[in-house]
Every structure is written in structure tokens, then in C-alpha cells.
């Protein structure tokens, strides 16, 4: 197994451009009388290779912000650049293209239960037509090995522990060869040891690949991995630390 296969897929860090750049973002749910604004004038940047945690009480708008950055919702007001692409005033098809460059890790692992760890990870290579079937198989094994699951390749999610499932999810997110990783409370459903393992794993990968991570979390045990912490309250950025 050589690293030569992986090397060309590594994203070149571009220190000049921020990976995420938000300016005066507002966002509301509903319309008319039912309209409820959840984000107010949010502005921040995330540089390449940074690990940024997004914290704050429930309802503070963290997750909404994450879905906007993940191109899962349309930006209605303000400006948002992700990976140097504008997400305001774009079509749905463009949003889907942006998603392909982002690795998502969710609170629930959301693996397809009817597919093995290997199949779940390998599926992601469908979005990368330039990767051949053989390469995809090889990369899948490398990724699952790198998250410590080389002995669970052909297990269905039902036969994996919570921590193992979340590690498959990490491997799946990385299979997209992402230039940005978005994580939504990835440790919330895990015990402290498994949670720590997953976070450490993410940290290593971010360092090795120069891939920035934006992570929503409530978990005080993992705050130490952050380069920066953005604190949100009532839809506004309360503090940077």
C-alpha cells in the first residue's frame, strides 16, 4: 500500500483565500406573520487547515448556520463564500456541486443500514467519476484502515458499536476527498472514550490533509482541539475565543 495513491488527492492548502467567508448573513424561517429570524448579521471567516468549533445553547442558530455553509439551504440575505464560491444567488444545481466538495459528519451516523462499512464508503466514489473502480476499492480500504476499522470492512452498521459507526461515517466523509469538513455534534451519541477517539481522528486528518473543520458541539470535553471557538447566542455571534 503506497501513499502515492493518496498524495495527488490531497488538497493543496491555499493560505491566501479563506475557506469560509460569511458577511452579514441573516436567515429566517417561515414567511409573512410566521416569519422567524434565526440568524442576525453573522460575519466570520475560517482559514485553511483551521479547526473551528461552533458552540452555544440550543436554538442559537448554530445548526442553521452549518446547513447554510453546507449548501443545504439557500442563502437569502447577506453574502456567503464557501471554497471561494458564492452561495448567495445560486441555483440548486450549483449547491449540489458545492456539497460534493464538503465532507459531512452528523450527530447520527446515517449510514445506509443495508450496506456494509465498505459499501457505504465506496458509494461516495460514485460522485468522483475520475476515480476508477479499482482505485475506489483500494482507497476505501485505506480510509477504513486509517479510522481503525480494517477488521470490520464487511460488517453492516447494525453489527458495529456507536463509535465504530461514527468512524465509518468519518471515513465516508473523507472519501468525498473534501476540502472542508462540517460536523454536527459528532460526539453527542457516543461515550466519552469513543467521542474522544473520533475527535482525535478528525484532528489528525485535518492536520495531515490541511482540511479545515467546522464543528458544532456542546461537548466541553473536546474544546481543546479547537484552533478557535465561535460562541453563538440568539442567532448572533456572541464571542470569538
Amino acid at each position: 500500500m503506497s501513499n502515492a495513491n493518496l498524495t495527488p488527492r490531497l488538497t493543496e492548502p491555499t493560505p491566501s483565500d479563506p475557506v469560509i467567508s460569511a458577511r452579514h448573513l441573516d436567515f429566517s424561517f417561515g414567511e409573512g406573520d410566521l416569519e422567524k429570524q434565526v440568524l442576525f448579521d453573522v460575519s466570520f471567516e475560517v482559514g485553511s487547515g483551521e479547526i473551528v468549533l461552533l458552540t452555544g445553547p440550543s436554538g442559537s442558530g448554530k445548526t442553521t448556520l452549518l446547513t447554510l455553509i453546507g449548501a443545504l439551504r439557500k442563502v437569502t440575505s447577506g453574502e456567503l463564500f464557501v471554497l471561494s464560491r458564492p452561495l448567495h444567488h445560486t441555483s440548486m444545481a450549483d449547491l449540489v456541486e458545492v456539497r460534493k466538495e464538503i465532507g459531512f459528519i452528523f450527530q447520527q451516523h446515517n449510514l445506509l443500514p443495508f450496506m456494509t462499512a465498505r459499501q457505504n464508503v465506496e458509494l461516495m466514489f460514485q460522485l468522483q467519476p475520475d476515480v476508477s473502480r479499482n482505485e475506489a476499492a483500494l482507497l476505501t480500504e485505506q480510509l477504513l484502515t486509517s479510522v481503525g476499522l480494517s477488521h470490520r470492512l464487511d460488517y453492516h452498521p447494525a453489527r458495529l458499536s456507536g463509535g465504530q459507526k461514527q468512524r465509518v461515517a468519518v471515513a465516508r466523509a473523507l472519501a468525498a476527498n473534501p476540502r472542508l469538513i462540517l460536523a454536527d455534534e459528532p460526539t453527542a451519541a457516543l461515550d466519552s472514550q469513543s467521542g474522544r477517539d473520533v475527535v482525535t481522528l478528525l484532528q489528525e486528518l485535518a492536520r495531515n490533509r490541511g482540511c479545515p473543520i467546522l464543528m458544532v458541539t456542546h461537548d466541553p470535553r473536546i474544546l481543546d482541539i479547537a484552533d478557535r471557538i465561535i460562541n453563538m447566542e440568539d442567532g448572533r455571534i456572541h464571542s470569538f475565543s
Binding site: 456541486e97 456539497r99 460534493k100 459531512f104 452528523f106 446515517n110 445506509l112 461516495m124 460514485q126 460522485l127
Partner: peptide, 18 residues
């Protein structure tokens, strides 16, 4: 039964068409 998983695939860039 698999709506969340399907939605996840969409979030990761799979199209409705797929």
C-alpha cells in the same frame, strides 16, 4: 424508513435523480 439516510446522501452531493 430510510428517509434520513437518503437525505444524508443528498447532503453529500447525490442528486434526486440518483
Amino acid at each position: 424508513n430510510h428517509l434520513p439516510q437518503y437525505a444524508t446522501l443528498k447532503a453529500m452531493g447525490f442528486s434526486d435523480h440518483y
